[in-house]
């Protein structure tokens, strides 16, 4: 099989790149995502705040997804969902896997729009046990908003980036007790508007210059040791759930070792982490237009 333009990842960036490549005249585009739904992380973001720059409104993630997928449906971009890109090789071929089989695909250009993964607590030098009840913020968000799964009752949040702040509010709205958001820096790491809307508005305690130094509980988390970074003082905080928002890592494993070939382009969060979907989309549109123009018929 072959395609002129392969786009890996049908999140906001991948869809935006596909749309602008199509508009630029490329007529052979395959957009692939492992998920069953397009939109990447957007469908799990039930809060409002997407698309102020592009649509002049603060949409929810699913609404934003609807807008861009409606536009996508009006193009001839082929969308392959439930499809994993297993490998990308230096000879401009890729191997795709889905339930119907493996496909070896030749392409002219690849736009990687694979998003990012969350840093897990495993990477931190945290002492203690390794019990159940520890989730990354994006994982907790997916579990609650896409699968209706209930993560816990007494929750501590480690990390105050936007994901941490948004999950703090969502957990409160779900009737959970958010004990505090713990942050190692002296101020929160999210956008001002998320701080006001999520933390101040719900009076969620913030603990700055602190970290979780140990986990307790043999089977399910029963508490954590909180360490103040300035005094090294420690205290035990009982909780059954720890939600971590420790930062995002651009997901580029697929092209590791390929160097920087002239047919490969990175867009969206796998290029650099974007706070706003509008910025991820703007970046992807520019790349899509350029690559699409080169491939235009």
């Amino acid at each position: 099989m072959q395609t002129e333009l392969l786009i890996t990842g049908a999140g906001a960036a991948g869809i935006a790149a596909a749309l602008s490549a199509w508009e630029a005249g490329c007529r052979d585009i395959l957009l692939v995502d492992r998920r069953e739904q397009p939109g990447g992380i957007l469908p799990q973001c039930l809060h409002e705040g997407f698309g102020l720059a592009s649509y002049g409104a603060e949409l929810t993630g699913p609404d934003y997804t609807d807008r861009i997928t409606e536009r996508l449906a009006q193009t001839g971009v082929r969308l392959a969902l439930g499809t994993e890109v297993l490998a990308v090789r230096g000879d401009k071929t890729a191997v795709l896997s889905d339930r119907s089989g493996l496909t070896e695909l030749c392409f002219e250009r690849l736009i990687l729009a694979a998003g990012c993964r969350e840093r897990s607590i495993g990477s931190l030098p945290v002492a203690g046990t390794r019990p159940a009840g520890i989730f990354t913020a994006g994982q907790a968000q997916e579990m609650m908003n896409l699968h209706g799964q209930d993560v816990g009752r007494e929750v501590l949040i480690l990390g105050s980036g936007d994901l941490g702040l948004i999950m703090a509010r969502q957990l409160v709205l779900a009737g959970k007790h958010v004990i505090a958001v713990v942050e190692q820096a002296a101020r929160h790491g999210g956008m001002a508007r998320n701080y006001h809307r999520c933390i101040e508005a719900f009076r969620i305690p913030m603990i700055y210059r602190a970290t979780v130094s140990a986990l307790h509980g043999r089977s399910r988390l029963s508490g954590v040791t909180l360490r103040r970074l300035d005094s090294s003082a420690e205290e035990y905080i009982p909780c059954d759930t720890l939600v971590t928002a420790l930062g995002l890592i651009p997901e580029r494993e697929l092209v590791r070792g390929l160097g920087d070939p002239d047919w490969l382009f990175l867009a969206g969060n796998c290029h650099r982490v974007h706070e706003l979907v509008d910025s991820a989309v703007a970046e992807a549109e520019a790349i899509g237009a350029r690559v699409g123009g080169e491939l235009a018929v």
Partner: peptide
């Protein structure tokens, strides 16, 4: 138990 905060704290 992974969901619901665990059945019982230990």
């Amino acid at each position: 138990e992974v969901l619901g905060g665990g059945r019982h704290a230990d």
